[in-house]
Nucleic acid binder design. Structure first.
Lengths: 198, 198
DNA sequence: CAGGCCATGTAACTTGTTACATGATTCC
DNA sequence: GGAATCATGTAACAAGTTACATGGCCTG
């Protein structure tokens, strides 16, 4: 039940609608915990049933009405209790690493292309975190209330930098591999049915 | 459908039973993709139905019979096609970072304890990867067939090192926070129902 | 007038988690 | 005698994904 707690964590900042939460899960907290709007709406009704949040309808004209959710004292307590429990070490779960694991049974070129896209992605992320850091914490320190958020940004930065550097290394390694292969017996495979060693 | 493909990736190494696969997903490939035995058995029947793998029962005495699964040519082709598609950049999904996000609404001490456990965990992982690296690739290079696995180990190492360093930083930051708090108006909270600012 | 933003949801499906079930063998 | 290992599975539930539905407002 970590998505529910992540939502409670968001609502400690300010009351929000499902829509705003969905956007938050696409940004700040979404850097460590992804969720789309369907998941969020479903979870919100559960949290409301449990009494952890309270919905208040705001009538709007020109726009659809919205449901603003606020943490209840029970919700606050639930969040605090959850936070006091040990966390589960997150595992990596990366598609690309599975591809690399089986690199010998797979075409190298598309994996190399993929790695280049990844490099771009991680560089973008890094730049984004850097901008955020400079904007919210220009002198590199945070007021006590925001220490956790600064730490989040810092691990984001460290992670993206490490992964981007690794991508560069991996691209080089694959390039060396496929230029080496041109001189060996490996022929390009077009038809997935053909076998390299049949 | 990445678990299915991860299983196919494992089976490129050698034919295996569900039990052996489960152990592999607790080790090597499991460093980037976790799955427990229930998930694996379920996926195996699906893969068999699709004709991507073939099961062969091996009668044993003293032990329960086992079902050894082998990749079919169709399975090999499916893996190759999957690998040629772009991967989805993995997101972090870390419980602990959610806790830090809401650090201001939560008790610091258990989070700090958790961080110390994490530091241990990541140091262990780092050491484990290092041992693996020294054992499988003593001179730091790999034969062409194993380049992907070496790259996997390398990102594992980089990742664990970065996270462990960050843990140290985070522990210090939280220690500074809670020793600062002793001199302010924050009182320890035992009962989750009580509010810090009610 | 097409596309994006605001705002909420349902339905169907796939993954992932937790608990239970069986039963012999080997190691302490 | 109890725990761990080998080996396979079912059942129920929680979480995550994909697709669909509605409808006005604003911008290009």
């Amino acid at each position: 039940m970590a998505l529910g707690d992540a939502i409670l964590a968001c609502l400690t900042e300010r009351p929000m609608t499902g829509y705003e939460l969905a956007k938050t899960f696409d940004n700040s907290i979404g850097f460590f915990w992804k969720a789309d709007h369907q998941q969020i709406y479903r979870e919100l009704t559960k949290l409301r049933d449990r009494g952890h949040i309270q919905g208040r309808e705001v009538v709007q004209s020109g726009k659809p009405n919205k449901l603003v959710y606020t943490l209840t004292p029970e919700g606050r307590a639930a969040l605090r209790h959850w936070a006091a429990r040990p966390s589960v070490p997150a595992s990596i779960k990366d598609d690309l690493l599975v591809r690399l694991y089986a690199l010998d049974s797979v075409d190298i070129e598309p994996v190399r292309t993929d790695l280049m896209a990844r490099l771009e992605h991680h560089r973008d992320r890094f730049a984004r975190y850097e901008r955020l850091l400079n904007k919210r914490f220009p002198d590199g320190t945070a007021p006590p209330a925001d220490v956790g958020k600064l730490l989040g940004l810092r691990i984001g930065l460290a992670h993206e930098r490490a992964v981007a550097e690794w991508c560069e290394e991996a691209i080089e390694a694959l390039s060396a591999l496929s230029s080496g292969a041109e001189r060996s017996n490996v022929v390009p495979i077009e038809d997935g049915q053909r076998e390299k060693s049949g």
